[in-house]
């Protein structure tokens, strides 16, 4: 081995790798065998998910909204859901598997994960047939609506970065400053109930 200069560590076993290697890529690499329908997913969702995410993925309180928000990405207050924003279905399977339900993760079987993913497609109107079955075999054929709307980082081409000249130092603006917005007027620091848009 080219880089094995320290002789540290030991070989990982196949079972060890299988136990931890859970990630799923957009091309479907990493998906396990399994299958599940929208109807099966509804039952699991109602039992394990709806208390936080709502019966229809609408979100309870400040918990994440999973469905809806179509055509809101240019709106003043976008609603970024699986259906309106997420580019890849693989992320849904992967994330539910690795991190959900919140506070009790890694307990769902692969068939349950396929069923839940199918139900989330149904809640988002990506599939409309309650008998739709999602499986390892047909997974990569399902596309989410917003896949095409992501692009690679191009920040350094923005005008303020492209201009590398040193900025003005003296008499840069006429007149006196005028305050256009006060944080104290909003008065949300730090123990208020709500503010003008959070970060989650």
């Amino acid at each position: 081995r080219a880089g094995a200069v320290f002789g540290l560590g030991r070989a990982a076993t196949a079972d060890e790798i299988a136990a931890w290697n859970i990630d799923v890529r957009p091309d479907g690499e990493g998906l396990p065998e399994g299958r599940g329908t929208v109807m099966q997913g509804e039952g699991i969702y109602t039992e394990r998910c709806a208390a936080c995410h709502g019966d229809f993925g609408e979100g309870i309180g400040r918990w994440p909204v999973l469905a809806g928000g179509h055509d809101t990405l240019k709106a003043d207050r976008p609603e970024k859901t699986i259906g309106s924003y997420w580019p890849y279905l693989s992320t849904v399977y992967d994330y539910v598997n690795r991190a959900m339900p919140f506070g009790d993760a890694r307990g769902l079987e692969s068939d349950e994960l396929y069923a839940l993913t199918a139900y989330l497609l149904f809640l988002n109107d990506v599939v409309t047939d309650e008998d739709f079955e999602l499986s390892k075999e047909n997974f990569a054929t399902v596309k989410l609506p917003n896949e095409a709307n992501f692009f690679e980082d191009d920040r350094l081409s923005e005008p303020h970065y492209a201009d590398r000249t040193h900025p003005c130092m003296t008499d840069c603006r006429p007149g006196l400053p005028t305050i256009t917005m006060h944080a104290a007027v909003l008065d949300v620091t730090p123990e208020s109930e709500e503010g003008n848009g959070g970060i989650d």
Binding site: I82, Y85, W86, D94, Y95, A99, F150, F151, E152, D154
Partner: peptide, 27 residues
């Protein structure tokens, strides 16, 4: 290739005014 997991698709992507979003905004 990148895995495009939740923290690099749903989160840590930067929505622009035109409805498109930057991804892989690392620095």
């Amino acid at each position: 290739q990148p895995w495009e997991l939740r923290e690099e698709t749903s989160k840590y992507t930067d929505l622009m005014a035109n409805g498109k979003a930057r991804r892989h905004t690392f620095a």
